[in-house]
Design a protein around this nucleic acid. Structure first.
Length: 596
RNA sequence: UGGGGUAUGGUGUAACGGUAGCACGAGUGACUCUGACUCACUUAGUCUAGGUUCAAAUCCUAGUACCCCAACCA
């Protein structure tokens, strides 16, 4: 290879995105020190607020943060950013842990740095707050939220607060009274003394603590003042030794604040701890990236919560929901989600991801791993007229042809065949359309792994609907292969291969067929209300007939129903009443042809 | 109006002054006991206008468009 003009050109292991570039530069400079084994330190975290379920957008952050820790031999923390007890609940904490672990971001594994709660360092943070008051960098303000808002100013006009120059002794006394519960909610706040005229409104003396007489899901009743995000977050990162604090774009404006708080605490502190304020604290680096936003989807937790509360969906884990729990129930796999995130990459460009790419990602993975089965969703009865009455044969069925194609065995099992079958309604046309090479009067097709059959007649009800199709089979095609003629070549070809079940052996099952929750690419864009774009037909339930081998399928098991799609056993399923969710259909070239 | 960001085929992404590449989609064809998978080919792009340079997606200047920010949310 020729010498590249820049260090990473054409190199196969060059950084794959701007985050990796930053990390590799930092690593080269040993900017964050080293682990005991001498490797440069990389420590990331995923810091959800437990105020709802995690969704596909969070999955990007999880994959990113854990992936970086793994790639660079670092650590990954799961941290609950639980600074607002008003919105947070235990249920969410448990759900988040389940989802993060399911995605493979194991905070307890070889790349795990552990599980943390912001609330576990409230005491420490409070000490920092008193320190800032003593340093003259924070004050207690008795303006109401409303008044603060009114005095916020404009880009040209500075904000004001009458309490800004309150003596530090008095602020300290009031802060302690706040902590001791001597004041009601909203009566006062601790504010950072930064710059009331800053064009960045985040710097106009932001609130550090507010009074909230509220039980905390993790800390219990110990506190009645709670830190705001900006004040808390940097210290959570600092105390955990995070090197790269990765967050989304809307926090870019907050980065100066992130630095201000840590710098202010560090002011007067020294590397060795000598001096009045002690040792300097760790100062991580905040980096922002663009969110993952799929089309035809909403992701705001507030709106997702509302759909749950309004019973528009069955719950946070409704298979139509973009939540991780919903995707899991739908039949998505962690591998598929990780591959998807790898595929879309990381940048600072705000973009939309075609929902189809999510579907492709699952198809791709499930195609490789899902065992096949033949099931009929909308049955049409087929009677084989020349089949010996009462006769049953057990034919070989390849469980995973993909594995076979890759050189594996694929595995086989037996599937029962008899004289009365069900096929898919859409696989028969009395008057066949152009290029329709499935079953039609006089037309021959293959029943997969079984026999060639030819349609010889149709029975109808009084209304003229087809009730059953009469066929004959060719005994010489047993197994599904045409008999060989001269030179070992097949004597004839059939274009169509249909899936089928034996009516007497098939087991009934319920299939839930999902469509996107919203009909608009950007829900709410038209009217301002995403509910106006709700898809009224996002769930269809059908009763079908399943391959008898599926009788022992357990919740979470995944299959490809051949020619139909990928299906996953729902938790509602029982041995006596099977319920399958359709994860995604197979690509359907015929559907395109048929539309013309 | 102030501050902070971002602009490359339909979509997502690469390029770090030197051949605009990859993936997905779409189209065509091959293969096929899943109209799936796989394979081949095709398609189509640097926000605009100037400038610097032998050479600009990349550097400079001026515009334009879009996103975020005036919670005691995160």
């Amino acid at each position: 290879m020729t010498t590249p003009d820049h260090p990473h050109a054409n190199s196969p292991d060059r950084p794959r995105n701007f985050l990796e570039e930053i990390i590799e530069q930092d690593n080269a400079a040993k900017a964050w020190g080293t682990w005991p084994d001498g490797r440069p330190r990389v420590h990331t975290r995923f810091p959800p607020e437990p105020n709802g379920y995690l969704h596909i957008g969070h999955a990007k952050s999880i994959c990113l943060n854990f992936g970086l820790a793994k790639k660079y031999g670092g650590k990954f923390n799961l941290r609950f950013d639980d600074t607002n007890p008003v919105k947070e609940e235990r249920e969410y904490i448990e759900a988040i842990k389940r989802d993060v672990k399911w995605l493979g971001a194991d905070w307890e594994g070889p790349h795990g740095g552990g599980l943390f709660h912001a609330s576990d360092c409230f005491e420490h943070m409070y000490a920092f707050a008193e320190e800032l008051v003593k340093k003259g960098k924070a004050y207690v303000c008795q303006l109401s939220a409303d008044e603060v808002s009114k005095r916020r100013g404009t880009p040209q006009i500075p904000a004001t607060s009458p309490h800004r120059d309150r003596p530090t002794d008095e602020s300290l006394r009031l802060l302690r009274e706040m902590r001791d519960g001597k004041h009601p909610n909203g009566s006062m706040t601790l504010r950072a003394k930064i710059d009331l005229a800053s064009p960045n409104f985040n710097l106009r003396d932001p609130v550090m603590y507010r009074i909230l007489h509220e039980e905390h899901p993790h800390a219990g009743a110990t506190w009645c003042i709670y830190p705001m995000y900006d004040w808390a977050h940097g210290f959570e990162d600092s105390l955990e030794g995070i090197t790269h604090s990765i967050c989304t774009l809307e926090f870019e404006d907050h980065r100066p604040l992130y630095h201000w708080f840590i710098d202010s605490v560090n002011e007067g502190r020294t590397a060795d701890g000598s001096g009045p304020w002690g040792k300097r604290i760790h100062h991580p680096r905040q980096i922002e990236f663009a969110k993952f936003r799929p089309t035809y989807t909403i992701l705001s937790k507030r709106n997702l919560l509302k759909m749950v509360e309004d019973k528009v969906v069955s719950g946070w884990d409704d298979p139509r929901m973009p939540t991780i729990a919903g995707l899991r129930r739908r039949g998505y796999t962690p591998e598929a989600i990780r591959a998807l995130m790898e595929d879309v990459g990381v940048t600072k460009v705000e973009s939309f991801i075609d929902l189809g790419r999510m579907e492709n990602a699952v198809r791709d993975h499930l195609n490789k791993v899902a065992p096949r089965a033949m099931c009929v969703l909308r049955p049409l009865k087929v009677v084989i007229e020349n089949w010996p009455a009462g006769h049953v044969e057990h034919l070989d069925f390849v469980v995973n042809p993909e594995e076979q194609a890759r050189g594996g065995s694929g595995g086989t099992r037996k599937v029962p065949f008899s004289g009365t079958l069900y096929i898919e309604q859409e696989d028969f046309m009395e008057v066949p359309a152009k290029k329709f090479f499935r079953l039609a009067p006089g037309q021959e097709v293959r029943l997969r792994w079984a026999y060639f059959i030819k349609c010889v007649g149709v029975d109808k009800d009084a209304a003229g609907n087809v009730t059953q199709v009469r066929c004959t089979y060719d005994p010489a095609t047993r197994g599904g292969d045409a008999p060989l003629g001269e030179g070992g070549l097949p004597t004839r070809k059939v274009k169509g291969t249909l899936h089928w079940v034996s009516a007497a052996h098939a087991i009934p099952f319920t299939a839930r067929l999902f469509d996107r929750l919203f009909t608009a690419e950007h829900p709410g864009e038209r009217t301002g209300n995403h509910m106006d774009d709700l898809n009224p037909n996002s769930l269809e339930v059908v009763q079908g007939w399943a391959d008898p081998a599926l009788k022992d399928a357990r919740p979470g098991d995944k299959f490809q129903f051949e020619r139909l799609g990928y299906f996953c056993v729902d938790p509602d399923s029982t041995p006596s009443s099977l319920v399958f969710n359709r994860t995604v259909t197979l690509k359907d070239a015929w559907a395109k042809v048929a539309k013309e």
